[in-house]
Design a protein around this nucleic acid. Sequence first.
DNA 1: CTAATGTCTTTCATTAATGAAAGACATACG
DNA 2: CGTATGTCTTTCATTAATGAAAGACATTAG
Lengths: 291, 291
Amino acid sequence: MKDISWDAYQTFLAVARHGGLTGAAQASGVSPATVGRRVLDLEQTIGRQLFLRSQTGYRLTADGQALFEQLQAMDAVVRRVENWRQEAHGSAVVRLMAGTWVTWLVCENIQAIWSERDGFRLDMSVSERRATLAHRESDVGVRAVMPEEPSLTSRHIGEVAYAAYRQRNAPDGLAAAWLAVSEDDAISPYLRWPHEQVAASIAVIVSRPRSLLDLARAGAGQAVLPCFVGDLDPGLERAGEELKQLRHGQWIVTNSEDRHRREIRTVSERLYRLVKSHADLFAGKRPSRSF
Amino acid sequence: MKDISWDAYQTFLAVARHGGLTGAAQASGVSPATVGRRVLDLEQTIGRQLFLRSQTGYRLTADGQALFEQLQAMDAVVRRVENWRQEAHGSAVVRLMAGTWVTWLVCENIQAIWSERDGFRLDMSVSERRATLAHRESDVGVRAVMPEEPSLTSRHIGEVAYAAYRQRNAPDGLAAAWLAVSEDDAISPYLRWPHEQVAASIAVIVSRPRSLLDLARAGAGQAVLPCFVGDLDPGLERAGEELKQLRHGQWIVTNSEDRHRREIRTVSERLYRLVKSHADLFAGKRPSRSF
DNA sequence: CTAATGTCTTTCATTAATGAAAGACATACG
DNA sequence: CGTATGTCTTTCATTAATGAAAGACATTAG
């Protein structure tokens, strides 16, 4: 009767909850291989089979179910301790820095990134310039260029395509009216594009990129927007082909030192999933109207 | 907010309970160094000091006390799970093999070795031959020779001295009457001694060494007994000096493979303490009557 | 006061645990 | 029906955790 490491119980719970090694591994921050081994060890030690294994995941046996129910109480204690821990020294904050449109996407899908019971707060800030993670101004960032700083860890999350958009079924008279941000605020290439290519046709100038979407939807003219924004808006349609020269990659960036922090890993992972699930949209592969 | 391994909580509890690294380490079956590191990590992660460290041990701080009280519930769950585990496939048995007299000592001090709420059963068997742990016939053994088998782990527990004993204040007429076990059953040197040294004076022969004590106490003659037996019996007194040629060492032996099993470690450790606390008696340093 | 005991801590070689990648297999999809 | 996706498992090089021993320090005993 070897004694059972409490970690084994923790692992068991994760597998039972997620129904498989992969999910449990991600939740625990270890590899599926490790989770599998630990569950195997636990079964060995307890002397009972706890899971029914299949290629599609793990399912609890009767014994596993019994253990699972007992361990709920253990998990409850840990949650209480975590709360105690937080109230002791203030809950953690995850600072997420991204561009206007990724921030917009996150806001639209906030439930996929953060929920009430997450135990950390989210501090989102918009920056068109490259997120300055190196100076620890934020914990998770989304960048359009692969970071070179060795202290930053990056993860490629696909391509971003751009196109011009206008109000759906807009009168042809608007074809010439362009919307843009002021030249001073136009840092990103897609914001500079109108100034460089159609400067003479710029009808309305705003200071925030976010306003471009509102203007276009209101029928003020056409604006260059990321495809995932324009194609996702039922009130907009493409006003031309993808502007290929604006296409660029996108990376999630975290500080190498902090990326192990649970809540940072959580946010970064969820963000990754969110963007990945919109990968086609980002890449401009789902135009709301075909040409 | 890195997540805390449940093992860390387990370690914390052990330290809090035992009041120090050393005790906690023994209870957990790891080294004090590891326990110290884990506690340090936990404090680091929680961001609060949990213990007041001193050269004499660890004492809980206020925060530590708060955590300790919360974790009690966690431990309760684990204990319940352990019970469930046992009722599922029969509770564990620890097989303890020792000579007549160590077995006798254990029986006299059974509360130091086992208690009702231990969660395992004890199966004591007496063997004058060397305990055959190699074949897994028992889990914990006490031997008079250092085992050579590499699969066995041994721990020296001191020296054993022998002397002749007789009824206290016995009439002198009994000086010549010796008590012995039958030559066939006399395997250990101390049992062979009467046959080799005072064969002509052997008055009573029994098959079990245990009977020697009863006979001597009843005034049937004198018998060679381990000093810890004879000196401990108020009804006996030494009938001569220690028989130095019989003195030998003594070892607790466990199977290397099984010695990590919790209950085996428990029994072996308690046995060690019990014998150690009688070390002087074993070594014959506390004669009930001085010459 | 000195020695002895018991404690924690640190260091370093060793051991055990881990992750990445590849394989194997089932399921879902076109 | 074949392809693609997602899962678990296995292998092996790497990394992290560990234990033994020595050091440092306080306390206790003589």
